[in-house]
Design a protein around this nucleic acid. Structure first.
Lengths: 240, 240, 240, 240
DNA sequence: TATGAATGAGAATTCATTCAT
DNA sequence: GATGAATGAATTCTCATTCAT
């Protein structure tokens, strides 16, 4: 009779999460499941069903912790971003501490700053892929409250980093830190997409005459950030 | 069986397009319908059904001219890109002709080149949106042959433009024209996504404290391209 | 995206079947709907949509209970077969009890056995039609596990009946019971197809000169089984 | 441009078939294409498009020679049947000529007749598969005229063979030849289906405990025909 | 006659989300 | 809080047949 009928059997009920800590822990379990799944599949291939299965929870429980599937991945993105911001802030601090001799006000050269930034992103594949999904997919399906909370969180995360950047790089005026971060976001999104072809495209781009269309995320981002920073104040010169 | 109890409909049958020209014309009708629809909806919302309805053709006829929905939009993108390349090439030619006094070999300043490029994109909203869709959506669903043909077409379209750019901008070495175009692609993709929020996001970003997260495609691209070009050869200096 | 602008319908939601009994009952509701529909239409004409509509359930609910449309009809077939096996076993038992004088070990004559078998099938039109569909249609679209479960179920259903047949008919050696059942299956499939012409064919076969091509399921099966049983051990004679 | 558009190119026009011979030849080309395709695929997988492609003709041309796809396969079946009838008639003639000593009126034993019949079918796989398709598929989609023509042709093909059978087998009374052929048809249809499992089913039936459910067409048909013929007149005895 | 462009019905299945238990 | 059964919208592409050329 086993497979002639499909009816699923009962699963053991999970403990009730009463304390805030316990709830946060369960939320983290779901985030981690989403993270894990996203490492081996496309976003569109991941089903809520898979996430809960991988978490050992029930479908309904998912919606006790996240409003939608997108809200979960927004959570993953936020955590990744926070980690990245921390990383980058730390790396910047280190770099400035090491290099204060070059200038009175500890300042980095374009290539140095670019390198630090690229390094902070180079191992964060999950973050980059999620970033490229943020606008076209994730933000598409968010309730107003979650969206607002996200943007505020984002702003509060980027503000100190922006300030730090402005201190690290001599050509940055107030506001330029954030502007740089937004440019970085744009470049990361675009380069991430361009540098991650489908297997089919990869095969096609292997042909010598098409190879120039291939893009390497790290090297290209390094190149572009370096130039961008080097010319950061050039506009004034040309316009003036 | 299903095919057999079919009652012929009363809808007016369309003309048979037998000559290559007539077929190309009909293909163009479908492309145009896709273009029109894409102007007022998201890609995901557009159904093949809508395209054929808008063309006055039958569903099956669509598949006589395109393998998939994605193939049609690839066609639209290609046409848009061709038009853009022509535009830009022409604008560059004009600009160089006007500005030959500055240098023997007519050369543009970073801000000039940036402005020309941004101008060529600023009215091409369709092109920009399609570009942002190319990697995550369109290329995802293409057969190998179409994908190859597309990339080759792309390469052949970009090659002369790359050369022209190398002639227009003094700091460009051989190969830099294409590199610049790929960077432009990355920036355009990223900025396009960031600058086109959902209505909901738009409302949220209207709050003063979140306004800095807003991005304007043209002004930001102008800013970034100008700096990028200004610093184009900076890397060598810093690394040397 | 499509999933998100979904407006909940006003249709009455069905009760949640949480206990195994309740689930089995709902499964039976779907089986019964399939049965009913199959009585008045061809298999190919039946849509899952019709089955759920007739059950008052939603489309997705169907797939909670059956993997595919074929799996449902396999379930119907299995139930029919079980009922038939029971019927036949019972009829054989009755017949043997009545006729013990003829032989010490109660044994049936070919015509008697044939008649009992044909009788058991004669009112089971649904079963016969499904049997004729099993190989060309139903088994075509089954996952491996369901297929295996089905065959094992089949084997376990036929084994005791085979044994009983071997006891009922003097000429049957061990193994002949199953062999007879498989022959019966072949004959039933073939005769069922031949005896159920389309209305068009029926009209054509009404012509006197074509009438001999008409086949009556019961009479022909009776005739053939009787002869087959009568000659069951003949092979040995001829070969010997 | 090659694969970015799908538009097919012109093919050279075929010669017009004016003479009846030429038309018959083209008809035969189509039949042969259908035959060839059917050898390597399921009926349902064969598209008219494939048949014409394999014939080097255009789609429309197909419908100049056959009313429907089914009509073509009916044609194939008819040709196969004619060949089979010829084969069998010839084999019977041979057998009777060789064996006249046994009986005054040259007569075959059940096992002999069975063997001859099975032999005539054993290499005719195409014929057997088509036979099993005749009722459920082919006859389903025939216009009245074609259906009538088919049945008359069938009757005229079987009539002489029936007579011949009645002469070859002592127990056959007038009418029994056709009756036997119809029984043979039923058995062939059923056994053909049962003996040709899907690859999946084949794997499943490889398990020792399920092996008894496997059926071998030739051996089983031989067994059954032999017994059937041996008991052919038994009914009278039992009923009398 | 031959061609091949045009037609359009047709249906199974998935899966995010809800909500009765 | 947790569960998982129920919901139902949503959409591509195929392919036999027709018929204008």
């Amino acid at each position: 009779m086993s497979h002639l009928d499909k009816t699923p059997s009962m699963a053991p009920k999970q403990m009730r999460m009463r304390s805030p800590e316990a709830k946060a822990a369960r939320r983290e379990v779901l985030l981690e499941a989403g993270r894990k799944l996203f490492l081996s599949q496309n976003y569109a291939e991941i089903r809520v069903q898979d996430i809960v299965k991988s978490s050992g929870l029930a479908k309904g429980t998912f919606y006790l912790y996240f409003q939608t599937k997108e809200a979960l991945f927004l959570g993953v993105l936020l955590a990744e971003m926070q980690a990245w911001v921390l990383d980058l802030a730390h790396a910047l601090e280190q770099a400035v501490r090491v290099a204060p001799k070059e200038a009175e006000k500890g300042t980095l050269m374009p290539a140095q700053l670019a390198q630090i930034v690229v390094l902070s992103l180079s191992e964060r594949l999950l973050f980059r892929r999620l970033l490229a999904l943020l606008h076209p997919v994730i933000e598409e399906n968010l309730d107003a409250e979650t969206a607002l909370a996200f943007k505020e969180r984002l702003a509060s995360l980027l503000a100190p980093l922006s300030g730090q950047l402005e201190n690290c790089f001599g050509d940055f005026a107030p506001g330029d830190g954030l502007r740089f971060l937004l440019a970085l976001n744009a470049l990361a999104i675009g380069l991430e997409q361009m540098s991650r072809p489908t297997p089919q495209m990869e095969a096609i781009l292997a042909a010598p005459h098409l190879a120039p269309l291939k893009v390497n995320f790290e090297s290209e981002l390094t190149f572009l950030l370096t130039r961008l920073l080097a010319g950061w104040n050039a506009g004034d010169v040309n316009n003036g």
